[in-house]
Amino acid sequence: MTAIERYLAPADLDSALAALAGGNATVLAGGTDLMPQINAGKVAFRPILLNIRRIPDLRAVEVGQGRITIGALVTITELKDNPVIAKAVPLLAEAADHFASDQVRNMGTIGGNVANASPAGDTLVPLLVLDAQVELASATGRRSVPMAEFFTGPGRSVRRPDELITGLSLPLPRLRTVSRFVKFGTRPALDISAVSIGFSATLDSGRLSDVRVAFGAVGPTPMRGRATEAVLEGAPLDAGLIAKAAATAQDEVKPIDDLRASAWYRRELIHNLLGKVLSDVVSR
């Protein structure tokens, strides 16, 4: 473990970005990923420990111009309980309800969940199907990256070491949008997803359009199910289509064997659970 040389807890974004500019700072938000990783020796502190929790700008939740912006420091508990989020993007609130335990939710942030880039991160699958943009800022400028292009591998993303995630920006779902989130773990609380599925589409007279499907924990990054989406787009949603979509999903995911589940079982779960989600959508 490298020694921390400086600890900073700035109250404004610009100071934080200045501290990050050299690229030799570790960002601390809720610490619920960072600290276990440090303790397990998987990650080492950089010379500067930058606590971003005192920056009020990063806590805001705002709706305007057809979008909702959620600050990076919004905690998982707030995602679950904030009425604005529950109304605008219920899928995120639902994912938050399946997340860890109260203690972890109170500390853990959405920015941390995204920055950590785990294939099993529970807000990532909903953010993917909601077409979120990751808002990034550095001392030299700001940019916005579509969620689907953000992740490059387990724990890796396009975020540069001098950049901070300031928030997530999502288009407000259209009318008649149906959305679902399913997390499968072996127990109802305190479990990391063995697989997860996000689904969102507009349902009009028995047909789906603007279909977005995403999968978690079945590949190196959370992924959009493009092939599955193509099967579902515009077609009448009946038993035959559901079976075809489930089979397509099972083929397009790329899971691995690990302690939580075998690759075979993960594919079976994707098949069966997507089938359940779609049948549930039909029956509403």
């Binding site: 072996t186 127990r187 109802p188 609380a189 305190l190 479990d191 990391i192 302690l259 939580r260």
Partner: peptide, 23 residues
């Protein structure tokens, strides 16, 4: 407690699943 080649692979409560209250 899966033991692979003599080594325990889940020496932590994250991966050793005890029953939690809702179960």
């Amino acid at each position: 407690m899966p033991v692979v080649d003599g080594h325990l692979v889940n020496p932590a409560f994250r991966d050793y699943k005890l029953i939690t209250a809702p179960e």
